[in-house]
Amino acid sequence: MKVFIRYMVSARCKMIVQTIFLKIGVPFKIVNLGEVEVFGVISAEQREELRTDLLKLGLELMDDKKHVLIEKVKNLIVEMVHYTDELPRVKNSDYISAKLQHDYTYLANLFSQTEGTTIEKFIIAHKIERAKELLLYDELNLTQISYKLHYSSVAHLSSQFKKVTGFTPTYYKQLKQNGRNTLENV
């Protein structure tokens, strides 16, 4: 049985969720971004305690299948952009569709209706946050960052970066207060 959790987008969230499951005595097998595979059935009392404990930490237990699917899309994008070294070499739509085994048009429409933005804009926002992070680390130059994030050119990355942040990547790097967002707020 799988349990789905909204806003679970980082390794720290995974550790927190594991601690909660241990605390309430629900045996689990795997904790992934946004989902936990548990052994057996969770009692009503355990489910309510789980819901309460998660809410205290800004996480949310999900029951609605459409919201679960939207969270899977979000978590797949977060994992794809922030936690893998290489982005897939196929179109984002093909990758998401194949991974979630749903028609992309259905996913895109559902995502837009629920989130008020498109999947592409969500991906761009996360790619820009990743670019900010890589700029701050100062280990890669702009050409390497644009290649790593699969931009067609440095100009394309710079254009999207400026459109999203209001700054050029070079100017952003020079700022003293670099305003990065947490993954939950992208």
Rank of each mutant, 00 (worst) to 15 (best):
G116M: 01
M80E: 13
Q101W: 11
K99L: 09
Q174H: 12
E133N: 14
P169M: 00
S159A: 04
I124F: 12
R12H: 08
L87G: 00
H126W: 02
V81R: 10
F161G: 00
M1N: 09
L54P: 13
K56P: 02
L136I: 13
G40H: 01
E71Y: 09
H150G: 00
G58Q: 04
E71M: 06
N75G: 11
V36A: 13
S43Q: 10
V9P: 10
D63C: 03
A11M: 11
Q174W: 04
M62R: 07
R6V: 05
L157K: 01
R130V: 01
E49R: 15
I70F: 07
K163V: 12
K14W: 03
V31K: 00
D103S: 05
T84H: 05
E86D: 10
T182Y: 11
F21C: 07
R12L: 12
A44N: 10
S43A: 07
L57N: 07
V78Y: 12
V38Y: 09
F111Q: 00
L135F: 08
H67N: 12
F122E: 14
V154R: 15
F4Y: 15
T182W: 04
K66R: 10
H150N: 14
M15N: 13
I123Q: 09
V38I: 15
S146H: 02
M62K: 03
I20N: 07
L157A: 00
E35D: 09
E133S: 12
I77N: 08
L22T: 11
P88L: 06
M1R: 13
I42T: 10
K121Y: 08
R47W: 04
I145L: 00
E45K: 15
R51Q: 12
L69E: 11
M80I: 11
Q18I: 01
K173T: 10
R47S: 10
E129S: 00
K121R: 12
S112H: 09
I16K: 14
L134F: 14
Y172I: 11
L149E: 00
E86H: 05
K127C: 01
N178Q: 10
